[in-house]
């Protein structure tokens, strides 16, 4: 019968329309500004810099090695290393800018950073009236605490913390072992002295 297909289709539409009042499967939207869908564990938007302890300046994990600046595909990171009074580089960024109007949220900076210093944020409500300054995030706007990192990516942050702690413990052990080795060597040398003398 001509029109059968249309009627069948209309039935489908009606089912969806009525269903949208009762079945959450059929009504999947949320009232956005009032309601938010919780962000996923892995969600990413723009990068931020992690700092430990309570100090957003000295606590920054970033050592300004510039690996991320080199690898960033659209070249939107800009880093200047800090120098002390004598001009000796100290492992700390003086300038760390990310131009988020260029950044394409690819996460490559996070992947290549060997110090777990840069991570992805989930914040997306970043609209600005000032195209020039407002979207060029500087170091102070980028720095966020480790607690914040734990809040947005709890699983990943726990992993990173465990790894860092592990590395630290290993490094300390190494130092200890070195010290111990030096001590024993010294002792041995001292013990050997009288014989030599």
């Amino acid at each position: 019968m001509l029109g059968e297909g249309i009627i069948k289709g209309m039935a489908e539409t009606a089912r969806n329309f009525i269903g949208s009042y009762s079945d959450p499967e059929r009504l999947v939207t949320v009232q956005y500004p009032e309601e938010h869908i919780p962000a996923k564990q892995n969600a990413r938007n723009f990068p931020f810099l992690v700092f430990d302890v309570e100090d957003p300046v000295a606590g920054l994990r970033c050592v300004a090695c510039k690996i991320c600046e080199k690898e960033c595909p659209p070249q939107c990171i800009y880093i200047v290393m800090d120098r002390d009074d004598k001009g000796k580089p100290c492992k700390h960024p003086k300038v760390f800018d990310i131009d988020v109007s260029v950044c394409m949220s690819c996460q490559i900076c996070v992947e290549v950073c060997p110090f777990d210093a840069i991570k992805m944020d989930t914040e997306f409500e970043l609209s600005e009236t000032n195209r020039y300054g407002g979207l060029l995030l500087t170091k102070d706007r980028l720095s966020k605490s480790n607690e914040y990192y734990h809040k947005i990516h709890s699983v990943e942050a726990a992993e990173v913390d465990a790894r860092l702690a592990d590395e630290k413990a290993k490094a300390e052990e190494k130092v200890k072992a070195k010290l111990a080795a030096a001590a024993t060597a010294k002792a041995a040398a001292q013990a050997a002295k009288p014989v030599a003398g």
Binding site: Q75, C76, Y78, V95, D97, D99, V102, R131, Y132, G133, L135, L136
Partner: peptide, 12 residues
């Protein structure tokens, strides 16, 4: 590339 640049606010 031709030098028809539009000023973009990057620090590069």
């Amino acid at each position: 590339e031709p030098d028809d640049y539009e000023y973009e606010p990057t620090p590069h």
